[in-house]
Computed example of a mutant assay.
Amino acid sequence: MTSPALVQIPAPPAPTQLPQHAPLAAQTRDGLIESVHYGSAVAVAPDGGTLLAAGDPLAPFYPRSALKPLQAVAMVRVGLVLPDELLALAAASHSGAARHRDGALRILDLHGLTPVDLANSSDLPYGTREREEWLAGGGQATQLAQNCSGKHAAMAATCVINGWPVRGYLDPEHPLQQLVAGTVAELTGEDPERISTDGCGTPLFALTLRGMARAFGRLAADDAGGAEAAVARAMRRHPEMVAGEGRDVTALMRLVPGLLAKDGFEGVQLVGLADGRGVAVKISDGGDRARMPVTVRILDALDVDTTSLAPLATSPVLGGGRPVGVLQAADFLAAETSNAHAQ
């Protein structure tokens, strides 16, 4: 009998190449720790100095959709003018509700464009309820339903405004993407460690949590009336356009006055506070459920009143339909402080 051929499995990266994440959240079931979520987090002061940190906040990571407010700032700087609800949609990972799809169409129509001009990928609505309603009505995956359609409509519109070709607007060498790259570098204070492609097709920059936290602090604190202030104002006024009803990011901005928030796929959460402080969280396994409990824990450590955020800080674990445990943030800040004193 012939022996089966051996499959060559690539060697894993050396341990020194792996981010040194810390345990940020844990799920318990009847007092036993059932699951642990590792990750990294940082909070920065208005001057960019580190206020608190856990894990490896200087390891490069992809912010994913948390880049959208920075991309929106770049577009506003070169002439994109939209009503606040549509500018918020330009910075959105929306749920795909009718208001989101119609909003993307409005952006296109205002600039003589149609859905044919969109270059993002096609998808079903991101929100669970929105997806079910869409499918029940016979809907299929489309570019308008995809959660980044507002950003892409705004990108195509920005090209029209500046006389740039709409076709090819996702090319990293396109004037629009060159503008975005420069704006991201300016706001984060970093050159990207590398560049990839996001799920919707836009160029994606590998940055650090510290750099992204710095950028969100700048957006949230800018009161000079510039592009940063315009984007932050739109997002705060219309958090339902940034995410959607029933989404934790929408709830977070509604519950904490002046707070700016944006999530990203693969366990990313960014927050900017009105006083210029910024927070960045990355859950290492890419899971979504630990992102908000960890964020609320950091906000509490920064003396933000988190009383109203209790529903976001924990999630019940059910057994037989009744609560038998909880998902909550670990005491990672105390652990980091102890490690620092030990060194």
Rank of each mutant, 00 (worst) to 15 (best):
T142D: 02
T142Q: 05
T142A: 08
T142M: 04
T142R: 03
Q143M: 13
Q143V: 11
A145W: 00
A145R: 01
C148N: 07
C148M: 10
S149I: 02
S149E: 08
G150Y: 06
G150H: 08
K151S: 09
K151A: 14
H152L: 02
A153Q: 11
A153Y: 02
A153W: 03
A153C: 00
A154I: 04
A154M: 09
A154Y: 07
A154R: 03
A156W: 02
A156E: 10
T158M: 12
C159M: 08
C159N: 08
V160Y: 11
I161C: 07
I161V: 15
P165C: 10
P165M: 11
R167Q: 14
G168H: 10
L170K: 06
D171Q: 02
D171W: 08
D171V: 04
P172Y: 14
H174C: 00
H174Q: 12
H174L: 14
H174F: 14
H174T: 04
P175S: 09
P175H: 03
L176M: 14
L176I: 09
Q177F: 06
L179Q: 15
L179N: 05
V180S: 05
V180A: 07
A181P: 00
G182F: 04
G182N: 05
T183P: 10
L187Q: 12
L187D: 11
T188A: 03
G189V: 01
E190A: 02
D191T: 13
P192E: 07
P192F: 01
E193T: 05
R194M: 05
I195M: 13
I195G: 00
T197A: 00
T197W: 01
D198N: 01
D198V: 02
D198K: 01
G199M: 11
G199D: 11
G201A: 11
T202L: 15
L204K: 04
F205W: 13
F205H: 02
A206S: 15
T208I: 04
L209T: 06
L209Y: 11
R210C: 15
G211Q: 12
G211Y: 08
R214H: 13
A215H: 08
A215L: 10
G217L: 12
R218C: 03
L219F: 08
L219G: 04
A220W: 07
D222M: 06
D223K: 11
A224C: 12
G226L: 07
G226Y: 13
A227T: 07
E228Y: 05
A229K: 00
V231H: 05
A232F: 10
A232G: 06
A232S: 13
R233E: 14
R233N: 12
R233C: 03
A234Q: 06
A234T: 08
